[in-house]
């Protein structure tokens, strides 16, 4: 355990309820600066809910979430984003009737005062994603699923956040695009970006991540080094329900 520095993000025993239904039971996890942490699990395991409570999209009924020394549980999403968080939402959620350019620009909304930096980052995104550069003026709704995911990644990159939260980036994408998405994430990791990643695609997520947590029925059932978990039969069980 590293004791020298407190974690960038720590979730401390949170419960989340949707009406009468409890989705999370005392979930705890932490992400250190510069680390890639993945939350894995099958459908309805609570992995997305965990991410949503960090982003302020759902409010925990119990427990604390601390970002950079500040408690953020129950804060509005905009407040959390203002503290230096970027989000790649589940299902991409690009603005369909806005151009690729405008979508990217909106990613930089919290630092809209820094025009020159934004222009530079925008150029950088276009070199990383040549496909987006070709489609700058096109409406985002007309892009393919994979291109939209690239756009969502680029949009989050423009936030220049100290923590990027990514929700199921491989969902509904063909293997070629899954590879392309993860290529980008590997580069971000190499550049030192801290990432909290929620993913159903366990193998690839465990390859990217430093550490991972496995959720089942709203409980953390496994946690540890990504490499160890990748070899664990229990991970397979969590997905395939083998007896």
């Amino acid at each position: 355990m590293n004791t020298a520095k407190p974690a960038l993000l720590s979730i401390d025993a949170i419960d989340v309820h949707y009406g009468a239904v409890q989705a999370l039971y005392g979930v705890s996890l932490h992400v250190n600066a510069g680390e890639v942490v993945s939350v894995l699990g099958g459908n309805a395991s609570g992995k997305s809910t965990t991410l949503k409570s960090v982003l302020g999209l759902v409010g925990p009924t119990q427990g604390r979430i601390v970002l950079d020394g500040r408690e953020i549980q129950g804060r509005a999403p905009a407040d959390v984003i203002d503290l230096g968080v970027a989000s790649v939402p589940e299902g991409r959620r690009v603005f369909p009737d806005m151009s690729v350019d405008e979508n990217l620009l909106l990613g930089a909304y919290p630092r809209r005062k820094h025009k020159a930096d934004i222009a530079q980052d925008l150029a950088e995104v276009f070199t990383t994603f040549p496909r987006l550069a070709e489609r700058r003026k096109q409406l985002a709704g007309t892009l393919s699923g994979g291109e939209q995911q690239m756009l969502a990644l680029g949009r989050a990159w423009l936030r220049r956040g100290k923590l990027v939260c990514i929700d199921e980036p491989s969902m509904g994408l063909s293997p070629r695009f899954v590879d392309a998405v993860y290529d980008v994430l590997f580069r971000w990791k190499a550049a030192g970006q801290t990432i909290l990643l929620v993913e159903q695609n366990a193998r690839i997520a465990l390859e990217l991540a430093d550490r991972a947590y496995v959720l089942q029925y709203g409980h953390v059932v496994l946690e540890g080094n990504a490499a160890d978990l990748a070899a664990d039969a229990a991970v397979q069980k969590a997905y395939l329900g083998a007896a």
């Binding site: 590997f186 993913e199 159903q200 695609n201 366990a202 690839i204 390859e207």
Partner: peptide
């Protein structure tokens, strides 16, 4: 379900 193993080494092009 679990995703496939990647064929390329990861750290190649950072």
């Amino acid at each position: 379900y679990l995703g496939r193993r990647r064929t390329r080494p990861a750290e190649s092009d950072a």
